[in-house]
Design a protein around this nucleic acid. Sequence first.
RNA 1: UGAGGUGUAGCGCAGUUUGGUAGCGCGCUUGGUUAGGGACCAAGAGGUCGCGUGUUCAAGUCACGUCACCUCAACCA
Length: 477
Amino acid sequence: MAKDNQFVSQIADIETDFPQWYTDVVVKTKLVDYGPVKGTMVIRPYGYAIWEIIQNEMDRRFKAAGVENAYFPLLIPMSFMTKEAEHVEGFAPEVAVVTHAGGEKLQEPLAIRPTSETIIGHMYGKWVESWRDLPLRYNQWCNVMRWEKTTRPFLRTSEFLWQEGHSVFASAEEAEKETLDMLRFYEEFAVNVLCMPVLTGKKTEKEKFAGALATYGMEAMMHDGKSLQSGTTHYMGQNFAKAFDIQFTDKNGTLQYGYTMSYGASTRLIGALIMTHGDQRGLVLPPPVAPVQVVIVPVAQKKEGVLDACGELLKRLQRAGFRVKLDDTDNSPGWKFNEWEMKGVPLRIELGPRDIESGKLTVFRRDTLEKTDGYSLSEAETVVSKLLQEIGENLYAKAEKRMKERIVDAETLDELLEGVSKGNFVRAGWCGCRACEDRVKEFAQATARVLDKNHTAKICVVCGKKAEHTVFFARAY
RNA sequence: UGAGGUGUAGCGCAGUUUGGUAGCGCGCUUGGUUAGGGACCAAGAGGUCGCGUGUUCAAGUCACGUCACCUCAACCA
């Protein structure tokens, strides 16, 4: 036990020092390392493997929904950035700009994209001429740069990886529908791939994207009760179409502006995963995104037949379609157990002389920390399949239970403050005015995350007037 | 941008008060014994003490300057 405690002490306490726990976990499990430039991170193979799975799963869904991939340039002429008034105001403070190249000062400074609405708007302006050209529904996987003051691996870095989808439609209705469809798309992804419950809904004016008419968000509740925006969709109306001359001739021969929308989800999803499911021992990865779903740890691996049996099991499970790893390094079994638990592998199989002799399968579940040897080695494929399924469902259920328990209602500012201080999402009425929203922020350091679709509150939590909306307030990352 | 903190071996740190041989733990290399919850023994390798200037016979240690990173607030996927 003493040794076990020693191991645990390598990671900060998850309950009392969550920020440090997070930093410890991402670095010690080799997901990331800090880059030499402030706010940059290196995504190491184990972390990048998670991103690749997220990409593959999401990309497959995009393509099924009819979205096409493309790639637009990293550098954007500064003049593009200023074409949409609100957009430039919102992003100017965090744009990095290239002023010199080839040893000379550039005629026009070039923005390193913080997001690509402008350059894609510019290209769409060239490509759209007729109603027959619409809709355009493109997505790109890329990096973007936002010069943030405070940074944290995955949650907020100067440069991050994401996908950004940009569509243009002939009608407002179609663009608005796509905006809501994509919100549901993200939600489905969060639930089924990340095993992560989320709240989705419309953002307030204050929280909406610079240049959008409406922004919708997907918020996930982290282990400490704070909220993390994990995906957003934006309806731009004709704002960007007018700024970039995205015009087409309709069926009646009339010149019309298109309606645009965009949506994005980033490597922040990995941060969300870690903070949603992690525990005192480190990462807990849901089977659908785990780069290693099953690790086979040989016991007494130098004894005759052990490694052979492990290799055979490895091949069987690989053939069955699982992501499996055999750890045949020289480390002791105990060391491997702890290491792979810290790295969040959902299922571990311990295979030693005893198991080979008896034909039993010894498995350890990361989510419940339970070890059993009641399964048959010959049925390994079926057992693994069943357990991975159960683990995913259990992780979702646990996270959903926690989220539901931590949504509380408030009718006064004091109640709201008490709620968010205890790490809850607070559901409360809001009259809709900016002053009251600002007051919540000032009083409780909490922001309006999303509007509740089931509007139930009667009065505004701040001013007591009639509530126009019911809002989920929370402290956020 | 405000407030605090830290820079010494790959990692974590001690040493700085009172200037005088560069240390500890882990990790790493080699060999051996081990093996069902972070094994043990032995022998090794590894350092411009963040950077610069100064004081001094002598600076990791003192002075001044500078840079970087981390944490917390304000701003943000």
